Amino acid sequence: MELDRAKQLLESERQRIHRLLATAAEDTLGDSAAEREVGDGDIDAAQPLEHEAVDLAIERSLRERLDAIARAEQRIADGTYGKSLESGRVIPDDRLEIDPAAELTVAEAAKRQHHDY
């Protein structure tokens, strides 16, 4: 993949993630306000904790994605972008178009995901 195209894709992805983080923060504030308004009604006491856990998981996932983008940008600077971190094999352009921060080939990612279960 051409490096200018990779940089463009990574910047677009970074902007998308920042928008999602901003939306997640707004949703968290909205959830908190709604829970305060309900007060001592029939709301399940565990609901605020569940919402908070979900919100934190989403934020953590988005921040991990930003980290992956930063690592991809570092690989561009190092001259190793587009190569698998595991095997050094070339990651196909089609995969990088879909996920410009990809660190593994599809087969390697599938194998790793299978082992995570």
Score class of each variant (00 low, 15 high):
residue 84 S to V: 06
residue 55 D to K: 06
residue 16 R to T: 02
residue 84 S to E: 09
residue 91 I to C: 05
residue 83 K to M: 01
residue 97 E to N: 11
residue 47 Q to A: 09
residue 31 D to C: 03
residue 108 E to T: 05
residue 18 H to L: 13
residue 72 A to G: 08
residue 106 V to L: 15
residue 18 H to W: 06
residue 93 D to E: 14
residue 83 K to W: 02
residue 100 P to G: 06
residue 53 A to F: 01
residue 38 V to M: 04
residue 103 E to N: 04
residue 72 A to Y: 07
residue 11 E to R: 12
residue 42 D to T: 02
residue 86 E to S: 13
residue 44 D to W: 02
residue 48 P to Y: 07
residue 56 L to C: 07
residue 22 A to P: 02
residue 52 E to R: 13
residue 56 L to K: 11
residue 40 D to M: 00
residue 3 L to F: 02
residue 79 G to F: 09
residue 1 M to S: 08
residue 56 L to F: 10
residue 32 S to L: 10
residue 28 T to P: 00
residue 66 L to G: 04
residue 39 G to F: 10
residue 13 E to W: 03
residue 1 M to L: 06
residue 88 G to Q: 04
residue 114 H to K: 11
residue 76 I to D: 03
residue 59 E to R: 15
residue 34 A to C: 05
residue 76 I to M: 04
residue 33 A to C: 05
residue 54 V to S: 04
residue 27 D to M: 03
residue 101 A to C: 02
residue 16 R to C: 00
residue 36 R to C: 01
residue 31 D to R: 15
residue 100 P to K: 04
residue 104 L to S: 09
residue 27 D to N: 06
residue 7 K to I: 01
residue 40 D to F: 02
residue 97 E to M: 07
residue 72 A to Q: 03
residue 66 L to I: 12
residue 52 E to L: 12
residue 48 P to K: 08
residue 51 H to T: 09
residue 1 M to F: 05
residue 64 E to R: 14
residue 79 G to M: 06
residue 96 L to N: 11
residue 56 L to N: 10
residue 9 L to Q: 09
residue 72 A to I: 11
residue 99 D to P: 00
residue 20 L to V: 02
residue 31 D to G: 01
residue 99 D to I: 14
residue 97 E to K: 13
residue 43 I to C: 00
residue 94 D to W: 12
residue 105 T to C: 11
residue 117 Y to D: 00
residue 95 R to A: 05
residue 91 I to R: 06
residue 108 E to F: 07
residue 41 G to P: 01
residue 95 R to Y: 04
residue 59 E to A: 08
residue 91 I to S: 03
residue 67 D to T: 07
residue 113 Q to A: 14
residue 74 Q to L: 15
residue 70 A to N: 10
residue 113 Q to F: 09
residue 78 D to L: 06
residue 12 S to K: 15
residue 107 A to P: 05
residue 75 R to Y: 04
residue 73 E to I: 00
residue 4 D to H: 01
residue 30 G to S: 08
residue 114 H to I: 04
residue 74 Q to N: 15
residue 108 E to I: 06
residue 102 A to Y: 08
residue 24 A to N: 14
residue 75 R to S: 10
residue 16 R to D: 13
residue 42 D to P: 01
residue 21 L to V: 08
residue 29 L to K: 13
residue 64 E to P: 02
residue 60 R to G: 12
residue 5 R to A: 12
residue 22 A to M: 07
residue 91 I to H: 07
residue 87 S to R: 09
residue 32 S to Q: 12
residue 38 V to S: 06
residue 90 V to M: 05
residue 89 R to I: 01
residue 77 A to E: 11
residue 42 D to R: 09
residue 51 H to D: 09
residue 43 I to W: 00
residue 28 T to E: 07
